[in-house]
Amino acid sequence: MTERLLEMEDLRVSFYSRDGENQAVRGVSLHVDAGETVGIVGESGSGKSVTAKAALGLIGPPGKVIGGDIRYRGESLLGWSDGRWRKLRGNRIAMVFQDPMTALNPVKKIGAQMTEVIRRHRGLGKAEARREAADKLREVGISEPERRLDQYPHEFSGGMRQRVMIAMALSCEPELLLADEPTTALDVTIQAQILDLLKDIKARSNMGIVLITHDLGVVAQVCTRVVVMYGGMVMEEGAVEDIFYRAGHPYTQGLLKSVPKRGGGLRERLVPIEGTPPDLLDPPPGCPFIERCPHAFGKCVERPPLFELGDGHRALCWLHDAEHSAAKVPGAAAGGTDAETVGERGASDE
């Protein structure tokens, strides 16, 4: 059976400022099992990074978790002390961020930084920890690890620094790895290497990986499951094939159509999503995509539930409501969702 690592239920996070309450995360439910790579996709302001930070207990003032629950292996994490969180973060959940330069201490050798982490979390001796650090560097594809351990962060290139970060994260042998835009700052050739590395880690271990990104290409290449976020909510989730081949939410369909297709005619016009994302200081009460959605109808002013479209494939959209499907041709959902699929599977309220 699958081993459930992380689970969020109806999570709500808000940030308070002079302008009011910014409802960054508005009722997000998701889970991550051991051995899977879950992509959380969304644009800026979708709430994807805030969701990840919440899973690490890193929401501090002016932000606040105002509702819902976060569980790790079935145990609720909310209300934990800083010390407990810190233990969880080091030993069981590790993280990698976009910019490795801000996460590494610039005046300390890589070896010293790595052994410090290893010794604290795994209680190894100095020499052992150093051997372990060298092993991890080798594992992430850094040659001559013994020599590299005695270098400072600035002596590494951007891609190499990100490898060091991943090696450091792996050195505690975590069960769950959270990577927030780990390749966004890198060149495309280096990005490819880091993505291959993540795939390789997944193949070798039973680690759960969460990859937060705005890049659909990255998601398609490495993730097994995808969660699409928009306006602080989960719009759709499903296996990577569900999302790319059978997208059930107009937002997901719109995103897929707005990127150029490989091999598509040179001057084939892009199909953009018109408009801009909602203002989360004053979000629409219903579907956050309502103002940009080509299929919006009366019902969309109410918040939709997640409709089940298939095994583990769910979309937050009234188009999949049984009532609506009966009244209208659901094929209007366009963009690859054919009428039969929606009709047959029906829609079950959750």
């Binding site: 495309v188 050739t189 490819a192 790319f244």
Partner: peptide
């Protein structure tokens, strides 16, 4: 060749054939 092979294609079915540089 290496640069083009590194583009992540938004299609989970497209197998990546990386060319190293």
């Amino acid at each position: 060749q290496a640069l083009l092979s590194a583009i992540p294609v938004p299609d989970p079915g497209a197998a990546a054939k990386r060319i190293a540089w």
